[in-house]
Amino acid sequence: MPGPALPDPNVDEPDEALMLRYAAGDIAAFDTLYARRELGVWRFLLRSVRIAAVADDLLQDVWFAVARQGGSLRASTDGGTGYQPSARFKTWLFTIAHHRLIDHFRSDRHDLRLDDDAKEDGTLLDTLAADSGLGPLRQLQSRQQAEALIEAVEQLPAEQREAFLLQAEGGLSVEDIARATGVNFETAKSRLRYARQRLRQQLQEFA
């Protein structure tokens, strides 16, 4: 009779330690990082481009970059996307995602729409309400309310929407958002503040 399953030794390790293990050749450490962060990155990309197939492609590009750069891990002081052993992995990861979005929008300037699958995904509602100080929206349950919230996020100016989604989907702090998007702390803080104000105005009927 088989014994109990052994716990995964990587589960409780910080992202940064896992990244260093991967750089040293531990493929399982990369698998743990991917399982831990893949959904948040994908949701951030999806809410930004609004087409699931495009988000899938961008997600693949992001993780290819992580694997490629992690395999030749080195300190970087040039302000690029090279991973620094002392840096937070999550901030670096979403910085890569940010740059891939910039590349995408520069090469594909066309109208995008939120597809039906995204509208039916209630997890965005839960995340935004819990992480972004929207108070009464924590109780919203209906599809109509969820769609209203997603539509309101869509209507945010691009820079405010990105900052908001980096916090809501990525769990980044204001300081991390500033680093990921290449702006100063006060600019990132202002973008978040204006995004929340706009959302509250748009969603007053559900408060």
Rank of each mutant, 00 (worst) to 15 (best):
L137W: 04
L46D: 03
R37Y: 00
A28R: 07
Q197G: 11
T187M: 04
T81D: 14
G40W: 01
R74E: 07
G40E: 04
S190G: 08
D61Y: 04
A118M: 13
Q141Y: 08
D116K: 13
V49P: 10
L112Y: 00
M1K: 03
R200E: 06
A28C: 03
T127W: 13
D61H: 04
R68P: 03
Q160D: 03
R68Q: 10
R161S: 11
I150R: 11
D57K: 13
Q145S: 11
D176A: 15
G70A: 03
G79L: 02
R161V: 05
Q204D: 05
A180F: 06
I27K: 06
L112N: 01
E147G: 15
D126E: 06
A75P: 07
R37A: 01
H98C: 11
L128G: 12
R143C: 12
H110M: 06
Q167S: 15
D116V: 07
Q202E: 15
T95M: 13
A5S: 00
A207Q: 07
I51H: 08
D103W: 08
R74W: 02
H110F: 04
K189S: 01
G3Y: 00
G82N: 04
P7S: 06
G70N: 02
G80A: 09
T181D: 06
A28V: 03
L165H: 04
N184D: 08
L18V: 05
E169I: 08
Y194E: 12
L59V: 02
A65K: 09
L58N: 07
L156C: 04
A5C: 00
F94E: 08
T181V: 12
R47A: 12
T187Y: 02
T123G: 10
I51L: 10
G171P: 09
G82A: 05
L20A: 13
A163S: 12
Q144F: 10
L199E: 09
L18Y: 07
L166P: 12
D116Y: 09
L172P: 13
D12L: 14
D31L: 00
I150S: 10
R138N: 10
R143M: 15
R113V: 11
F185C: 11
Y83G: 14
R68W: 01
R143V: 13
F89N: 11
W63A: 03
R138W: 05
F105W: 07
G3S: 02
W42L: 06
A118N: 10
A129S: 12
A118H: 09
Q167Y: 14
E169K: 12
F89L: 10
T187H: 05
T181E: 10
A168M: 02
G80T: 06
L39F: 08
L172C: 13
L134R: 01
D176F: 08
P7W: 00
E154K: 14
R88H: 15
I177A: 14
D57P: 09
S76T: 06
L18N: 05
P4M: 01
E147W: 15
R100I: 07
A28Q: 06
K189V: 00
Y22R: 02
D176V: 06
Q201C: 09
Y83P: 15
G80L: 09
